[in-house]
Simulated assay, not measured.
Amino acid sequence: MTTALVQDYMTPQPITVQEDAAIADAIKLMEDHQIRGLPVLDHQNTLVGLVSEADLIVRQAPLEPPLYLTFLGSVIYFESPESFHHHLKKTLGQQVKDVMSDRPFTIKATAPISEAAQLIVKHHISRLPVLDGENNLVGIITRHDLMRALHP
């Protein structure tokens, strides 16, 4: 029995978006193609991130500054100010690069399907860009694709 590979279940030639595209363009692509996330490419067609529904929905969430306490002239934060700045950037951003998740987890097309499942479960993600031997984007594999792999 042969081991199932990522390339056997991935969606080849995924729909992508450029990093400097308007957020509205990414939303339209996702709605038109009924997909929940897009690989983001730079002008050399190199993968630079992923934009997902979660990255876009955060724009609708209320922006709450981090809780802090002033004590003897010092500010003590109860939450990370960095997460507030990250949320602020996503809320005010106008381009895909402002809201995308950068440095996405990826997988090679020739990797076993079990490795894709392990990455998706371990990192609580919904999709993995699939790369060839030269690190070119050749596909995307999602939780739904992994479910198909379970069916004989």
Rank of each mutant, 00 (worst) to 15 (best):
Q7D: 08
D8C: 08
Y9N: 01
P12T: 11
P14F: 00
V17H: 06
Q18P: 11
A24C: 06
E31C: 14
G37E: 08
V40I: 09
V48K: 06
V51S: 06
S52Q: 01
L56M: 11
A61P: 00
L63V: 03
E64M: 11
P66I: 05
L67P: 13
Y68C: 14
L69V: 15
L69Y: 12
F71Y: 10
F71V: 15
Y77R: 13
E82A: 11
F84W: 04
F84P: 02
H85V: 10
H85L: 15
K89N: 05
K89T: 10
G93D: 06
Q94F: 10
Q95R: 15
Q95D: 00
K97D: 12
M100G: 04
R103L: 12
P104Q: 10
I107D: 04
I107S: 03
T110M: 09
S114V: 08
L119S: 01
I120W: 01
V121W: 12
V121P: 06
S126D: 01
L128P: 07
L128M: 03
V130E: 01
E134A: 14
N136K: 13
N136T: 09
G139V: 00
I141P: 00
I141A: 04
D145I: 03
L146V: 01
L146P: 02
R148P: 02
H151T: 13
P152D: 05
